[in-house]
């Protein structure tokens, strides 16, 4: 699904990712853990195609190089990033935005666009599955949403857009246990042989809910250790410092 070879990324002449290697197969869940400033969010940004980074190395998604693929085409090809801090977009109705988004992606895939009635049914169904009050979707996108509502909204978007590769950037930060449960249930119910997940997190807590197949430790722009979910427990006990 995703192969990253010797990925380096710098911004404002500061190198943040310093030769990162990672391979994610279809159906796998990988967790990346690491201390503040290790490059976790940069990795998420770079995979989403965000402008402003100077990049070298190679990122292949479904066998195709992503290096020159712009943000929206990555999304249209099935890459989804759940933001650590979802942005508030005043005046934009969440449902209208999501419908535009879904139809743009469907169009790019050569699929038939969805009409308003079918779209609203789909939203209703997915919101119900997640236990999310669908009323938040008739509000302005993320405006005045609580931290939990914003993150739930990201997972709902993931469900509706139905991507192949899902990157969760510190989705657990700022969540209470109930919200964490809703979100991890949402992720777990989406797991399939065709979908892969890259879960970026600070804490082992999230990994109690979303069981990863592989855990990697990111430190100073490189993956310094990889293992199974046992590694996360070990980190929780010993802290990141002991690994260096």
């Amino acid at each position: 699904m995703l192969v990253i070879k010797n990925l380096k990324a710098s911004i404002n002449n500061r190198e943040i990712l310093k030769g990162l290697n990672l391979k994610i197969n279809p159906g796998e869940v990988h967790a990346i853990m690491g201390p503040n400033g290790s490059g976790k969010s940069t990795l998420a940004n770079v995979l989403s195609g965000k402008n402003g980074y100077k990049i070298s190395g190679e990122v292949k998604y479904l066998g195709e190089s992503l290096n020159d693929i712009p943000v929206e085409e990555r999304a249209q090809k099935g890459i989804f990033l759940a933001f650590q801090y979802p942005l508030e977009i005043p005046g934009v109705n969440t449902n209208n935005f999501l419908k535009t988004s879904l139809n743009t992606i469907k169009k790019a895939k050569g699929e038939k666009e969805i009409d308003t009635i079918a779209f609203l049914e789909l939203v209703k169904e997915k919101a119900k599955e997640l236990g999310i009050d669908e009323k938040i979707l008739s509000r302005q996108l993320n405006v005045g949403f609580s931290g939990g509502e914003k993150k739930k909204n990201e997972i709902l978007q993931m469900k509706i857009l139905d991507p192949n590769l899902i990157i969760l950037d510190e989705t657990d930060s700022g969540l209470d246990i109930d919200a964490l449960k809703i979100i991890s249930d949402g992720v777990n119910s989406s797991r399939s042989e065709k979908k892969s997940f890259l879960v970026i997190t600070h804490y082992q807590r999230l990994l109690e809910y979303i069981k990863p197949d592989h855990v990697h430790v990111l430190s100073d722009g490189k993956i310094i250790k990889s293992g199974t979910s046992e590694l996360a427990l070990e980190l929780e006990k010993k802290g990141y410092k002991k690994l260096n």
């Binding site: 989403s48 195609g49 712009p70 943000v71 929206e72 990555r74 999304a75 249209q76 989804f80 990033l81 933001f83 979802p86 942005l87 977009i89 005043p90 005046g91 934009v92 935005f97 999501l98 535009t100 988004s101 879904l102 743009t104 992606i105 790019a108 302005q140 996108l141 978007q157 857009l161």
Partner: peptide, 19 residues
Amino acid sequence: YLMTRGLTKKQAVQLLVSG
């Protein structure tokens, strides 16, 4: 943010302007 949901830059700007 809007482009990571598949919108082109033009669509994203139009959406922000309407908003």
